[in-house]
Nucleic acid binder design. Structure first.
Lengths: 135, 135
DNA sequence: TTCCACCTTTACCTTAACGATAAGGTTAAT
DNA sequence: ATTAACCTTATCGTTAAGGTAAAGGTGGAA
């Protein structure tokens, strides 16, 4: 069990961030002492990492809150499981559309790179012909 | 040439958004009348779309400002082109890392879906055995 | 027991990306 | 010339995701 400062360090975030995550309902400490100290196990580390990943690809904490539970096995009954499956599907669709977008962007960037690269070579040739030795 | 309300509509954003983009330096109207009216050509439409895409995949307007120019051919000289190429490379790396992240997330989601699905089937079997007809 | 590093809550501050409203000017069809 | 529909700048408000500081309580090593 780690104190808040310890997992914060391990996860590369501040304690403020962890308390904020707790406040918005992303997770709770595995254990809270009678004096109010928060203690976490290393499962929390995995959760934090996942949250950061999802944030990085553009999800808001609110959206993350909706889906974060999906990553961790939970015992529920039929109804709940069907709801979960629906969330999973929606989330997956969203991710697929983002992947497609990024691949488009990537393609155009590569084209642009080729274009720029070739223009650069041309400029260099001209530069040599007209006498410039450097640059 | 379109007035601001027209491209706004076509692009699916508000005029406020367009003026804000202008304010933060993302682009300028193709033309401004003496009375201050902004006029845009449909090239702007492409730019807006690209901005929205990049926003969707998690870039801030500040980051977008750094890279948006890269998508549109510009005549520059050698030095500038090399700088551009570097930006392109960095941007591409960032995108690649995001794609990888998303693919990981996707993989785990699919696993989780399989797991949930099979548990659901099991629960249904048990439900039938022990007498429940619906749910 | 002392002491420092760490913890607690509370509360105010900040930045990004707009939304909403006010007060007034413009355009173009009638 | 009038009028509706659009435009302008200016300003204030809002939400998200924390940062930062204040004032005080804890834990554990010496």
């Amino acid at each position: 069990m780690f104190k808040i400062g310890e997992i914060a360090k391990q996860a590369g975030v501040t304690t403020r961030t962890l308390r904020y995550y707790e406040q918005v309902g992303l997770f709770v400490p595995s254990n809270v002492s009678t004096k109010g100290y928060r203690y976490y196990d290393d499962g929390t580390l995995v959760v934090i990492t996942r949250i950061r990943e999802l944030q990085r690809v553009g999800l808001s904490l609110d959206e993350i809150k909706e889906v974060i539970g999906l990553y961790f096995h939970q015992k529920k009954k039929v109804e709940a499981k069907e709801k979960t499956l629906n969330y999973l599907r929606v989330h997956l669709d969203d991710i697929d559309s983002k992947i497609k977008l990024l691949n488009n962007v990537k393609k155009e960037l590569k084209e642009q790179m080729q274009f720029t690269q070739s223009r650069l070579v041309q400029l260099r040739k001209k530069g040599r012909k007209s006498g410039g030795s450097k640059n």
